[in-house]
Amino acid sequence: MWARWAHRWQGADVDTSIWAKMKTQPLLSVRDLSKFYGGRIGCAGVNFDLFPGEVLGIVGESGSGKSTLLSCLAGHLAPDRGEVIFATAEGPRDTVLMAEAARRRLARTDWAYVHQNPRDGLRMSVSAGGNVGERLMAVGARHYGQIREAAVDWLGRVEIAADRVDDRPSAFSGGMQQRLQIARNLVTGPRLVFMDEPTGGLDVSVQARLLDLLRGLVREMGLSAIIVTHDLAVVRLLADRLMVMKGGYVVEQGLTDQVLDDPQHEYTQLLVSSVLQV
């Protein structure tokens, strides 16, 4: 949505101050975000700004707090402390304090969430076309032909054959289900996509294909994304920036290739050196 808007103004000699301001205002500002489970730390003291078009990778091993952090950011969990300020159409709003209705509305339009298991993000008893068209229908699309056309178009963009538009996801392979979930999420042009281990559980060749697809879509649509993964190769491919988490804390963050090639923190160095080379 933003990319389309930006593209229209690029090159035109117009009042770029608003556009420039949009570009320099963070899309998402996170301040001191913390979640505790009794005495245990889920995540603690997380701070960062995400700008339009940036892809942030969050890596860590099991128990690092990365999934907790993602859930708090996406509004699935209520944090115990901190702010998650999103640049809505009406100005910056702390989504932690938002009424649930407003947050759900955000989740339907400006945000998208790609689950690790595609079954969590799809309606298994509804056809592929219906799955992709649902968000369109939820925001008011009322022309069957156009909805179907948009659905087929998006299936093509995620490399699912058009003749599968009426098949149920239960008839799809894992990789296809994941691609369908991505199509379903991106069809309304959200500005921020949360992804939880998007390639987890998939075969290696399927993972590769999915990563290429995600790269292309993120670049094409100018999306901002926050991707949680334990796979460093995924972040090197997809993320501009990287946050390394351990024990609930962010131990290092910075430019992806810099954090991976010149890790400063002890844990990051351990992580990078542990990766097997093929």
Binding site: E100, A101, R104, R105, R108, R123, V126, S127, G129, G130, G133, E134, R135, L136, M137, A138, V139, A141, R142, Y144, I147, R148, V165, D166
Partner: peptide, 22 residues
């Protein structure tokens, strides 16, 4: 209940869509 509260009726049209496609 949440769908009614939020006027989130996309699913209703999904059912009609499914009918037409089938």
């Amino acid at each position: 209940r949440k769908m009614h509260e939020l006027e989130d009726y996309g699913l209703m049209h999904v059912k009609l869509y499914e009918d037409i496609s089938r």
